[in-house]
Write a protein that binds this DNA or RNA. Structure first.
Length: 854
RNA sequence: GCCGAUGUGGCGAAAUGGCAGACGCAACGGACUUAAAAUCCGUUGGGCCGUAACAGGCCCGUGCCGGUUCGAGUCCGGCCAUCGGCACCA
């Protein structure tokens, strides 16, 4: 009872009411081209959220932050006359459901269904205007059938370096197509996590531990499926340019791709006769100008040449060193980075520029995976080489003269080449070019580009993922035919990892035995697979003939720009992984002619993390998690939505505050009471103050100023200041004697994207009394403003003396420069500061201020 | 170590190079009420001078130091702190 009174307005009735109406009328369903009710005349706008992994814990207030922002834009764009595609779905394959199944024996499909239901109910309570007819779930066979289908396209393609794009494998003229497929099998050292019983992608390993669970990860060679994303390194890098993404995110991707320009140099191995590839060590360096400073070479411990060059007496030491290096986890390899280790092979190489014999070492500070897996050691001009040389007493030779009087030893910047006959006296840039050219002429090297990006380790030894649609026949892999898709994983009683690295699916013996001669692949895809193309499926989610219909794809993903999705909002945590993988898949599909644009996401916006009230990251252990349901119970979802946006700039990290929610709820209650009053029976009835009358000049100005501000702020994602402006609007009208209907209608439309339930209700109540516009608020057009109503007749101008405000005056906006100047100079308070001094300068800023310099 | 982002009242924040602190929270005062809640109105960066009390006035203030400018939260240079990413990438 008393708690009943405490509720500022009956949101608990209004909100379910309007949600039911929207659902019943399918108000936010977007028909596809060719469908009934499709309006060809409108332009399209595709607004996408990063779809969630439906965890058992349910939504927390961080999820709806981005979702609210996109919902505001979606509702706004519809009123601006766009066909808006605004879908939602579930990224539901992944480890947590499987871990839960291992613990409880409950099938992941069941927990997934439960979690999805929970998430969906929570999202629907917030009143998002998703087209739920387009809901998709990556674990639905009707969905992953096409994930598997896309994998087959990748498997059946190769990257043609001549055309610089993917082509069907049938166009490959080489002997063994398996060597060039975009999906291939390789024995690679992988990040094996014994605890999780799976390998992890490099990106899933953080500080030598699994990103999920924080378990130790060790290096171990295993036979794995790989996707040749490195073939696309250059395009992934270059084509970032035309995307409207935050520069910081682009930079993150650029750094991840890690393009580096340099030179490959071949060193002959000394005392070996023939000039075969076996007798050369190829290194990659970005500083070929320091070649004369190379005093030793290093091979990565796993480098295949090691076996060929090690001398008899050095074998035991090398063998031992390699064994130790192989056992080292990533954590050890990085943690012990300070102290360099290595072993001499006993062999020597010949420096091509001066025929000097230099020793060849093995050391684990050289990585097999980058460049050629071998380096030339130039201790004078490389920090790592210097540490190594100092530890093992190798010679240090200065070949670059720093500008200034810096010590050349340890100098890694650009300078002048010294002690280097071919390039003596040249600045670094020219020296690099000249020596590279010399090496090319002498068949000892060439310019080269290297990328940090590695191929994508695509198989997981897990149950809850898409099975790879592959068969094995006498040791050779082979694609399943498309009409056998989807490959549905068998039911298992035991999901536990085998611990040997063999996937759990191997336990389903009958399933694995495809035929007498063929076995099924038992690895599954990583969690990223489903999210690599979900934005395409949203365009045409029910299509059972194609992963997306051509017409639907061309319409929704069409654009004058490279990217098809017009707006994509999500967290920064996906800056490199999801966004890079999705771009890669998209480009393959583009090359093969399946999609019409080279990039998936044109504009990207990252929302910031919401912290707990204690300014700490929200976490179960801190007990500072805020559940949207609790907030909505108490203040209503319109208040929840508005608070999420009022907190501060979308991109910023910011702490939650229940007090803040209360403040925004008070604002919405003021809006409510501006329109309706409680009569003596305790019923809310429309306020008699609202009448069909022309607004007063000040009211009209306020209305137009609010239209302008809210419109511009939505366009620029400054939702917090849009709400501020609407608060100012309401404050201005709260005590007005008469309230013009037209201004109120305009205001409700402006507020509608933010607080759709409240505004729908008030709009309906206006319609019940006034018969001037009977359409629903969601069918309204977004109001425009008239600049003429914003101009002031007179304005306050600050008068400064030497930059300090000493007085203010009101002046007509039409006052001339000289009038303002004179008024300022004759102002008595100002004269106090100017008498007896020479006025050196008067700066007049029209409509703002005057600055008198004395 | 390298790269990036951020730094403004008690708090969340706002400010095309032009009156710092809009809007909101909290706090305080008042109105309404038997009372409380709710609501409405007002005050609220710091310091100093001034006055019986008002009024009024002055100085300082956007992480720190310097610069450009008539004028800097905003532009430039150097530093510090916090957060995020990368981290033997040759």
């Amino acid at each position: 009872m008393s708690s009943e009174r405490r509720k500022p307005y009956p949101f608990h009735q209004i909100e379910p009411k309007w949600q039911a109406i929207w659902k019943e009328r399918q108000r936010f369903h977007a028909p596809n081209p060719g469908d009934k009710n499709f309006d060809q005349s409108k332009p399209k706008f595709y607004i996408l959220d990063m779809f969630p992994y439906p965890s058992g814990a349910g939504l927390h207030v961080g999820h709806p932050e981005g979702y609210t922002a996109t919902d505001i834009v979606a509702r706004y764009k519809r009123m601006r006359g766009f066909n808006v595609l605004h879908p939602m779905g579930w990224d539901a394959f992944g480890l947590p459901a499987e871990q839960y199944a291992i613990k409880t024996g409950k099938h992941p499909a069941i927990t997934t269904r439960e979690n999805v239901a929970k998430f969906k109910r929570q999202l629907q309570r917030i009143g998002f205007s998703y087209d739920w007819q387009r809901e998709i779930n990556t674990t639905d066979p009707r969905y992953y059938k096409w994930t598997q289908w896309i994998f087959l396209q990748i498997y059946n393609s190769w990257f043609n370096p001549a055309t610089h794009k993917a082509e069907p494998i049938s166009t490959y003229r080489g002997e063994n197509p398996d060597e060039v497929r975009l999906a291939y099998v390789a024995d690679v050292p992988v990040n094996w996590c014994p605890e999780l019983g799976t390998v992890l992608a490099n990106e899933e390993v953080v500080d030598g531990k699994s990103e999920l669970g924080g378990f130790p990860v060790v290096r171990r060679p295993m036979r794995q499926w790989m996707l040749r994303i490195t073939a696309y390194a250059e395009r992934l890098l270059n084509e970032l340019e035309r995307l409207d993404w935050p520069e910081a995110i682009k930079l993150l991707q650029r750094n991840w791709i890690g393009r580096s320009e340099g030179t490959e140099i071949d060193f002959e191995i000394a005392d070996r006769g023939s000039r075969s590839t076996d007798s050369r060590i190829r290194v990659f360096t970005t500083r070929p100008d320091t070649l004369y400073g190379a005093t030793y070479m290093v091979l990565a411990p796993e480098h295949s040449l090691v076996d060929l060059i090690v001398t008899e007496e050095q074998w035991p030491a090398i063998r031992e060193y390699r064994a130790r290096a192989a056992q080292k986890s990533d954590l050890e390899r990085t943690d012990l980075a300070k102290e360099k280790t290595g072993v001499f092979t006993g062999a020597y190489a010949v420096n091509p520029v001066n025929n000097e014999r230099i020793p060849i070492w093995v050391a684990d500070y050289v990585l097999l995976g980058y460049g050629t897996g071998a380096i030339m050691g130039v201790p004078a001009h490389d920090q790592r080489d210097l540490e190594f040389a100092q530890k093992f007493d190798l010679p240090i030779r200065e070949v670059v003269q720093p500008p200034g009087d810096e010590n050349p030893i340890g100098f890694v910047g650009e300078g002048i080449a010294i002690n280097s006959p071919i390039i003596e006296g040249l600045p670094t840039g020219e020296a690099k070019k000249k020596i590279t050219k010399w090496l090319e002429q002498h068949d000892a090297g060439k310019g080269a580009i290297n990328y940090k990006l590695r191929d994508w380790l695509f198989s997981r030894q897990r149950y809850w993922g898409e099975p790879l649609p592959i068969l094995w026949k006498s040791g050779k892999h082979e694609a399943l035919s498309e009409n056998e898709l989807p490959v549905v994983p068998p039911l298992l009683d035991d999901y536990k990892p085998t611990g040997t690295g063999e996937p759990p699916l191997a336990k389903a013996k009958d399933w694995v035995r495809y035929s007498d001669r063929a076995l099924r692949e038992t690895n599954t895809m990583p969690q990223w697979a489903g999210s690599c193309w979900y934005y395409l499926r949203f365009c045409d989610p029910g299509n059972d003939k194609r992963f997306v219909g051509e017409k639907a794809e061309r319409y929704w993903m069409g654009s004058a720009k490279p990217g098809g999705v017009d707006l994509y909002v999500g967290g920064t945590e996906h800056a490199v992984l999801h966004l890079l993988y999705a771009r890669f898949w998209h480009k393959v599909l583009f090359d093969l002619g399946y999609v019409s644009k080279p990039e998936p996401f044109q504009r990207l916006v990252n929302q910031g993390i919401i912290l707990g009230e204690d300014n700490q990251k929200m976490s179960k252990s801190r007990g500072n998690i805020v559940n949207p349901d609790d907030v909505i119970d108490q203040y209503g979802t319109d208040a929840f939505r508005c608070y999420e946006m009022f907190m501060g700039p979308l991109e910023q990290m910011k702490p939650w505050s229940m007090r803040g929610v209360e403040g925004v709820a008070r604002f919405l209650a003021r809006v409510w009471r501006l329109f309706v009053v409680e009569n003596q029976e305790g019923n809310w009835v429309l306020s008699g103050r609202i009448i069909q009358v022309d607004p007063k000049k000040a009211q009209r100005k306020m209305t137009h100023a609010t239209i302008k501000k809210v419109t511009e702020d939505i366009e620029s994602f400054s939702f917090n200041t849009a709400i501020s402006q609407m608060m100012i609007f309401v404050n201005e009208f709260t005590n007005a004697e008469t309230i013009p209907l037209s201004a109120m209608r305009t205001f409700l439309v402006l507020l509608n994207p933010f607080a759709p339930h409240l505004t729908s209700e008030l709009w309906e109540r206006l319609n019940a009394k006034f018969r001037d516009d009977l359409r629903d608020i969601t069918e309204q057009e977004w109001p425009g403003y008239d600049q003429r109503f914003l101009v002031e007749d007179d304005v306050e101008i600050a008068i400064q003396v030497n930059g300090k405000v000493r007085d203010r005056m009101r002046m007509s906006t039409s006052a001339t420069h000289n009038e303002i100047k004179t008024a300022a100079l004759t102002n008595p308070k100002i004269q106090k500061f100017t008498t007896g001094k020479v006025v050196r300068n008067v700066v007049v800023v029209p409509k703002r201020l005057v600055n008198i310099v004395v």
